[in-house]
Computed example of a mutant assay.
Amino acid sequence: MPLTFELDPPVTPALRDGILRLWADVSNAGGAVGFVPPVAVDDIRPELVKHLVAMAEGRMRLVVGYEEDGTVAATAFVAYNAHRLMRHWVWLYTVMVHPSHQGKGYGRDLMAAAEREVRGLGGIEAIRLACRGGTGVDRFYASCGYKEVGRVPNAIRVADGDDRDDIIMLLPLT
């Protein structure tokens, strides 16, 4: 069953808890979303609060993918640039699809939904994201139309002796 996507759903306790569970499950499955396993919901909560505050202040938007029963199965946060010379593009953060849905096309659906929603914002000419090297996710983003535009070698320290590149990718919308 395909996911249903929504931009800026009301932030309810169910949504908050669903995002926390999703984020923990993705992280513990090895997903590169800011944490390394093992991670608990309480470890993630402060980071989610930062995202929710940015949403409340109008600096960030949220695209959520729901399963038929309303379970949060995917997210992507869209962050506006505060710098006046960079307001023509946005960042995509915390792009996640639940590990149980890997291989079903939901990641591609999420990326398409995020692009569609960003195009609907008006005045945005590109979407930029960063991803952790060594995971293969850069190939996935490339298959969604993103191009690698920068790379910082060994910028992400996953563990002692395990440094990864920070890969910057861009999707022009014009």
Rank of each mutant, 00 (worst) to 15 (best):
P2N: 11
E6A: 07
L7N: 01
P10N: 03
D17K: 03
R21F: 04
A24Q: 15
A24N: 05
D25I: 00
D25A: 04
V26H: 08
S27F: 08
N28E: 06
G30W: 04
A32C: 09
A32L: 13
F35P: 13
V36Y: 14
P37C: 12
V41C: 02
V41N: 03
D42S: 15
I44M: 07
R45A: 15
E47R: 13
E47H: 10
K50P: 02
A56F: 00
E57I: 02
E57M: 06
E57W: 01
G58W: 14
R59C: 05
M60V: 01
V63H: 08
D69N: 10
T71R: 14
A73P: 05
A73K: 12
F77H: 08
F77W: 15
A79M: 12
N81V: 01
L92D: 07
Y93L: 08
V95Q: 06
H98N: 01
P99D: 11
G103S: 10
R108D: 06
D109M: 12
D109R: 13
A113D: 02
E115H: 06
G122Q: 01
A126T: 10
G136V: 08
Y141N: 11
A142V: 03
S143G: 14
G145M: 09
E148T: 01
P153N: 11
N154F: 00
G161S: 07
L171N: 09
L171G: 08
P172A: 04
T174K: 11
